[in-house]
């Protein structure tokens, strides 16, 4: 009986993810694994936990919208986002509520720069991110105006693969992983400060701050 229970426990642990092994993702370059003397995690160290599985976006037809309560709604292609804005690199650790974390070197543009171009109207206090799979999450607008928050297109020096959020993933520093929206299609400026995103409407904290519980 004990042996059976032990075997069952090992099977449970394995299949519940504690010991799960994932398939390596094909990358368009060699990952860097160290940055300024600090070890980095791998692109393969993430666990796939998106709401509808990996999304495969067509780069040729993709458009990023910045709209809502703005003076000039914008639409960008991928090269327009990357080439027409100052690019930045930053090593930031993603902490998932599930208990795992990954330290990655991110490269991207500042969300603040995109918002500035669209010009938020007075009264705008919230930024809602929409993803291609219907996922949404929101932040107070001050989070972007007061901090250097990246919308990344590269991780560890390789283009973000579809499994990790191509073409753009939000690097929501100091926030739990569910605020790091992948496959971003729209940045909506709003005055709805009570907006609840996908997980927030299912009991997760609205702020998603790392120093607070992830559950409301």
């Amino acid at each position: 009986m004990r042996r059976v229970l032990t075997v069952l426990a090992i099977i449970c642990l394995w299949s519940s993810g504690c010991l799960k092994l994932s398939q390596p993702i094909k990358l368009n370059a060699t990952e860097v694994r160290q940055y300024q003397g600090k070890d980095l995690s791998s692109v393969n160290d993430f666990r796939e936990n998106s709401i509808k599985g990996p999304q495969y976006i067509d780069a040729d037809t993709y458009k990023l919208k910045v709209d809502g309560l703005v003076d000039t709604p914008k639409e960008y292609t991928i090269p327009q986002v990357i080439d027409n804005h100052q690019n930045y690199q930053k090593s930031v650790t993603l902490n998932c509520v599930e208990g795992w974390s990954v330290a990655i070197l991110w490269e991207g543009v500042l969300v603040r720069d995109l918002l500035k171009e669209a010009g938020p109207k007075s009264g705008a206090n919230t930024v809602i991110f929409h993803a291609v799979d219907g996922y949404t999450t929101s932040f107070p607008i001050g989070y972007f105006t007061d901090h250097d928050i990246l919308m990344a297109y590269k991780m560890n020096n390789v283009t973000i693969p579809p499994e990790r959020g191509f073409p753009f993933m939000l690097v929501a520093e100091d926030k739990w992983g569910y605020k790091w929206v992948k496959w971003i299609t729209e940045i909506e400026v709003s005055n709805d400060s009570s907006y609840e995103g996908y997980w927030e409407s299912r009991g997760y904290s609205d702020t998603g701050n790392l120093n607070e519980s992830s559950i409301k």
Binding site: C12, L13, S15, S16, G17, C18, R47, E98
Partner: peptide
Amino acid sequence: TILMAVSGFGIIDY
């Protein structure tokens, strides 16, 4: 233990 395992599944394989 069973409840921990089941709820663990509920988190990882929701």
